[in-house]
Design a protein around this nucleic acid. Structure first.
Lengths: 191, 191
DNA sequence: AAAATTGTGTATCAATCAATCCACAAAGGA
DNA sequence: TCCTTTGTGGATTGATTGATACACAATTTT
């Protein structure tokens, strides 16, 4: 050990995550990052290696936060339907509040569609959403909340796909009614 | 009139569309475009004005082609269910064949989420998908293919949202089974 | 307190970016 | 056949890109 770092690395990752989330990878320049993090380029490269590495780290951070939120809602709820509805409504409200952000995972999927390290993380994040939902749906089924003919894995894959669509439509600013109508129909898949 | 143009402008727009589709706006440099179109920068700016203007023109072209495909399927089909299924399956197969492309409208929505001229076109494209589907569903309902309690506009908004999700999930390379399971559940919305 | 080690920020790098300039070529009109 | 007009593409523009070099500051070790 020698001189100690003057900034908090985790907090810097959070701030970078926010910037990448709003502007995307390519549209966020190194100078934008340095300004946002209030550090010099020497500190930047010593701490993060490169812009790409920081992006992947920010993406991991985002995925972890997203996964936490999802699991928390699914575990705290006593009924599956209000839980799923809450998950979808939360996203709709987030997109209405700030349509420029969308979802960092979705943004990465479309912007970095042919860069293996990024797409692997995207796939892993979606697989995690799928399995969390599938587990909750399976438990709901054993509690008798879902009829016997329902397939939890199928439902989970449907919901995971629908969620990605909600985020895209949310960025297109089609209005509250549009997404709420879509939500109404989607929820019927559980009936 | 004086010297005549040595390249076909519409064909150039198509080639540019293909390039933007594969690589996105920011990741497609002017040199990439000049090489793809086999023209010099003078011809480029004389014909298209700027990289951004060409992108918007390519996006318009893409939307028009997409709209044609959609309308063609919906008008030619005698039943609404196979028609909707065909629309979704076509997208799934396209994403499986080339996961790096996705949908140019979706890619634009996420990459250019805060640039008005782009987002307006994205919203218009999605509204067009919505109204085409709503019209077809309304006609199907009047033919007795959909039960009386179904709301065509709600269903159209649901399908439009789900379609965007399919394109995102397709880029994440989660495999054929994943999207087909999602499709199975989504189709039940029409029952 | 001297040496060793690590963080910091400025200056700077070559490369690339989108866009402009301009000399020249090709066409129609006189 | 000149003259005008427009298309062409290579050369070049200033700005910006991500990344590195380096002198100096701060901290631990000896």
């Amino acid at each position: 050990m020698a001189r100690i770092r003057e900034f908090d690395v985790d907090q810097a990752v959070d701030r970078a995550m926010d910037l990448f989330w709003r502007r995307g990878y390519a549209e966020t320049s190194l100078q934008d990052l340095l300004k946002e993090l209030s550090i010099g380029s020497g500190s930047f490269y010593a701490a993060f290696g490169s812009k790409e590495q920081l992006y992947l780290r920010a993406l991991d951070r985002y995925s972890a936060l997203q996964a936490d939120d999802l699991v928390k809602i699914l575990e705290q709820a006593t009924e599956i339907r209000p839980a799923v509805r809450q998950i979808l409504v939360t996203m709709i409200e987030a997109d209405l509040a700030d349509p420029t952000r969308g979802c960092l995972v979705v943004n990465t999927a479309t912007e970095c569609g042919n860069q293996p390290p990024a797409t692997e993380r995207v796939a892993a994040a979606m697989r995690h959403v799928e399995s969390s939902l599938a587990g909750a749906l399976e438990r709901a089924k054993s509690r008798g909340e879902l009829s016997a003919d329902k397939n939890p894995v199928e439902l989970a894959r449907f919901l995971t796909t629908f969620v990605q669509g909600l985020r895209v439509v949310g960025q297109a600013r089609l209005g509250r009614t549009f997404t709420e109508d879509a939500l109404t129909v989607a929820m019927r898949a559980l009936d």
